[in-house]
Design a protein around this nucleic acid. Sequence first.
DNA 1: AATGCACTCAACCGCACATCT
DNA 2: CAGATGTGCGGTTGAGTGCAT
Length: 351
Amino acid sequence: MGRTPCCDNKKDLKKGPWSPEEDELLLNYISKNHGHGSWRSLPKLAGLQRCGKSCRLRWTNYLKPDIKRGPFSKDEEKLIIQLHGMLGNRWATIASQLPGRTDNEIKNLWNTHLRKGLVSMGIDPQTHEPLSSNCLSNNASASAATRHMAQWESARLEAEARLSRDSSLFSRVPEKSECDHFLRLWNSEVGKSFRKLSTSDKFACQSPISQASSSTKCGSLSAVTTEVGNLTGSSTMAGNQNEDLIYRPFLVNTEDVEYKPFQFNTEEVGYKPFQSITEEVEFKICQSNTEDVMAGSVSSCSNDLEDSSDTALQLLLDYPTNDDMSFLENNANDYATTPAELTPNSFICPL
DNA sequence: AATGCACTCAACCGCACATCT
DNA sequence: CAGATGTGCGGTTGAGTGCAT
C-alpha cells in the first residue's frame, strides 16, 4: 500500500538530538493530557517542532517513566541471548520480557556486545549454532524461524522429561505459585510471537505433523519427540521422513487435553532420552487449534501440565550448568568452553 | 597535543500491519 | 471494499566520546 512518511514534506521540523526543553514540553504535554493521544497531532499541541514519530520514539525510548536506565545486568543479558535464540531479531518481543528495557536499547546491546561475544565464542549470532559446524552448512536451508521453533519445542519436551524424572524420583508436588510461569510466558508476547511463527512458517505448514494433525482432530504425541532432539543438530524437521512423526508444537487446546503423567525409566534420562521417553508418553490431544492454545483456563489443566510448564520455563531460562557466560565479562579469551558445548541445546536444556 | 580509530547509543528511515473513514 | 491514517518494528546512521598512537 505504502504511504508518505509523516514528516517528509515538513522541512521546518527539527531533527537530531532532543534538547532538555523539548523533553520538558513533551513530558508536560503527556502528563497534562494523561497520555499522548494522537502522535501526529501531538507536536503541534505540545508546541514542538518535531514530527509525531520522533516524539513517540523519544517518549517510548527515553522519557517514559518506567524505563530502567543504566547498564544491563548479567541476568538480563543472559535472558536476551536466550530469547534471541528462540525469537531472533524480534526486539520488541524480547523487550516485553525485560521490564523497563526498550527494544532499541536491547537491539543496541545485542549489536554492540552480545553478538560480538557469541561470535568470539564461535557461535553464529543469528542461528546460535557453532560457526564452523558441519551441520550448519547442512542446515543452511533451514530457516532461522524453524530453528527457533525447534528450540521452543525442544525446551518444552525436555521440560516434560525433566518433570517426569523429578516426579518419579522425588514425587514432588509443585507449589501452585510456581506452576504457571510457562503459561504466562506462552500467553505473553513471546508466546504470541512464537505462535505466529509456528502457524505462518512454511516449515510448519509442510511438516508431516501439521498435515497429519490438521486433518485429524485427535492425535497422539507419543511419537512427537523422536526427532526433536536432533533438530538443532544434524537433521532438519523438513527433512524428516518419519511417517509416524507427529509434530504439532503447543497446538493443544488445554481444555481437551487428557494428560497422564508419563512414566519412563529414569536411567534413560540424560541428553538422549527423548526417543526412549516418548515411547511411553501418552497423551491424547483433541482438536488442535492454534488460536485456542492456552486460551482455556489454566485451572482446567492438571497440576502435571502446569508443572511441566514450569519446568519448561526453567529450561528455557536456565543457563548451562557451567553457566559459562564469561564473554559477558568482556574477555572472550578467557572463554574455556568450546563452541560445540554451547549449542542452543546446551543453552536451553541443561539436563 | 593532535589525530585517527573504535565504540556506543539516540535518533532516523522505511516498511508492514492495524484501524479508521 | 479501498484508500487514508496511525502506530509499531527492525535496520541503519551519525554525533559524541574515549582510547591508542
